[in-house]
Design a protein around this nucleic acid. Structure first.
Lengths: 169, 169
DNA sequence: ACTTTACGTCAGTCATGTTGACTCGAACCC
DNA sequence: GGGTTCGAGTCAACATGACTGACGTAAAGT
């Protein structure tokens, strides 16, 4: 598949459209994470801590194994991150009742506050993008991103009850 | 999970819609990079090398400074990466003619081949997502992603050539 | 002539990931 | 009851990709 630029692609998609998608993802992700990264650096934490805090906040009482499944890193890596977060009082563990082997993770009040500060930045950036693009575009964004995600994780995103709506100010 | 999301959001968008966007980006990026990362690991390179190769291929003759501007990393970091790529014969440098301080970067034939292999995977994933989502969704994806990107880099993405769909408001 | 720019390099540090091996206690199964 | 699997944690060693800071050199700009 050599680059016959304006030629017909068997997928009906032009090479440049695909490349543009790749680049949008690169630049989008880069800019999406830059500001929270800077905030985290100030308190000696990194992006990995943000991810852990985010998903614990999103799934209170999640087990270590389930969190590993989301993050797709090794338990040794996560262990270091969780250790930092627990030492600094952002995260608490409690033993599972039904299965006492499980350590269920929760944000402390301090953790909730940090999560809010970090994600607020990203929510605002996302909100700005949604507002600029319009409601219809948001649904398109959702559909394309879903297509990029492995089947295994697609189920984390149920179809919206009502289409994500942009509320006029 | 117990999502006790308190009622009113100071933003104009529902909290959950924004969170879903954040998560789509996280999972999408994670899955988008996983396979090329695995290929790179086999030849002792990493994601940083892929990024350099990609943008050199995309901008043949780009200067080191310009590449730094795209990647937003330090010259020391890029230097290591470029060194690896030049040692292994994926990238060539030539001196600028107008400005002889500049080192203009280009992929060798071997570099082009590697870039093709790596990005082919991502192009196919992107093509699949585009096909599943449909043409209209692709435009929406483009618009939302653009909104996530810092103003400074927005200009890298000119409006699509085909239907210059003017959206007001 | 002086300053700035483009690039490179040396040296040290940090964050985040990896493999592999091992322990411990709880749960599961025959 | 006993053996095995599972969830979690730990120790050790290592790779990668980022960072800061300092310094050097050559070319271009003023």
């Amino acid at each position: 598949m050599t680059d016959v630029k304006s030629g017909v692609n068997p997928l009906f998609l032009r090479e440049d459209d695909l490349r543009q998608g790749i680049e949008l993802l690169f630049f989008g992700y880069r800019d999406f994470t830059a500001e929270p990264d800077a905030m985290l650096a100030e308190i000696g934490l990194g992006r990995a801590h943000h991810r852990a805090i985010y998903f614990i906040g999103r799934n209170p009482g999640i087990s270590v194994t389930d969190l590993l499944g989301i993050l797709r890193i090794t338990k040794q890596s996560l262990s270091r991150v969780l250790g930092d977060l627990m030492d600094q009082g952002f995260v608490d563990q409690r033993q599972g009742t039904r299965d006492r082997r499980r350590r269920l993770l929760e944000l402390t009040e301090k953790g909730v506050e940090l999560e809010r500060r970090l994600s607020e930045n990203q929510r605002q950036r996302m909100a700005r993008a949604y507002r600029l693009a319009g409601a219809e575009a948001v649904e398109g964004f959702r559909r394309v991103m879903l297509g990029l995600i492995d089947d295994a994780d697609r189920s984390r995103f149920p179809a919206p009850a009502a289409p994500p709506r942009v509320v006029r100010r």
